[in-house]
């Protein structure tokens, strides 16, 4: 009689838990995307600096980026009425037309009731001058490329009840991850980008922003940890 050999119990396969975190080390100026504690994308990123003593700041004095644990909320073009060049989202179609005795720049609203509106507070010549500064040609471009926050902004919030959702009582941080119009222009011209300190936001290079996005770092619900300025990047991530 053949001896019955006990069958080997199949090895228990642990489900692959994906631990994904985005880390910012403002002192070391590094943004790091970790998946299961492995560096997937790493790039230079600059946070805010303290105001320089003795200097005059007209509107918004710079400040250090606020450390803490956050949750990614969105990745989209940003608009704000606070900054006149940022009232229109990056990439919005613009066009020149006659209005009230002069040529004005209009932008596409996406609204049926008023598909085009004039750009308020900025003249055609000022737009042409800004295009000259950024792209070297004095003209009105086809799309809006002057938004202070660049093409896309990553917004995040402090998740007080840890449900990964922006609930009542939780607010989006005023600090965000973004590029600048100057860096977008240099990238479009295939020139090297040298980052500058922000007023508190986190500045990245446009190509790096795209790399992080493609790797999934800016997906809604991801954890985002902003470390202290004195905190070094752990050796294992270097």
């Amino acid at each position: 009689m053949a001896e019955l050999k006990p069958r080997a119990t199949p090895a228990f396969k642990k489900p692959a838990i994906k631990r994904q975190e985005l880390h910012f080390y403002p002192g070391a100026r590094q943004l790091i995307w970790l998946v299961n504690d492995e560096v997937k994308v790493k790039a230079e990123a600059w946070g805010g600096e303290s105001p320089i003593p003795g200097f005059t700041y007209s509107v918004m004095p710079p400040r250090q980026t606020t450390p803490g644990k956050y949750v990614i909320h969105s990745y989209a073009p940003y608009r704000t009425k606070t900054w006149i060049w940022s009232t229109i989202a990056w990439g919005t179609r613009i066009s020149v037309s006659f209005d009230k005795g002069e040529e004005k720049v209009f932008y596409e609203t996406g609204q049926l009731s008023q598909p085009w509106k004039p750009v308020e507070g900025i003249t055609k010549a000022q737009i042409e001058s800004n295009h000259l500064a950024l792209y070297g040609t004095y003209k009105v471009p086809e799309t809006w490329v002057f938004n202070d926050f660049g093409a896309m902004s990553v917004r995040y919030f402090k998740d007080l009840n840890n449900n990964k959702k922006l609930d009542k009582g939780e607010t989006l941080s005023g600090e965000m991850i973004h590029t600048t119009p100057g860096d977008e222009a240099r990238t479009a011209r295939s020139m090297e980008v040298s980052l500058q300190s922000s007023h508190g936001c986190i500045h990245v290079k446009p190509n790096d922003r795209d790399r992080f996005y493609r790797a999934g770092a800016f997906t809604k619900g991801n954890d985002f940890i902003i470390h202290g300025y004195a905190e070094p990047v752990p050796e294992k991530y270097l």
């Binding site: 020149v96 037309s97 006659f98 209009f106 085009w116």
Partner: peptide
């Protein structure tokens, strides 16, 4: 009529 002209190019017809 000029003010409501569709942006894109200067409305030279209206101007003329």
């Amino acid at each position: 009529a000029i003010a409501n002209a569709k942006p894109g190019t200067t409305n030279y017809c209206a101007v003329a």
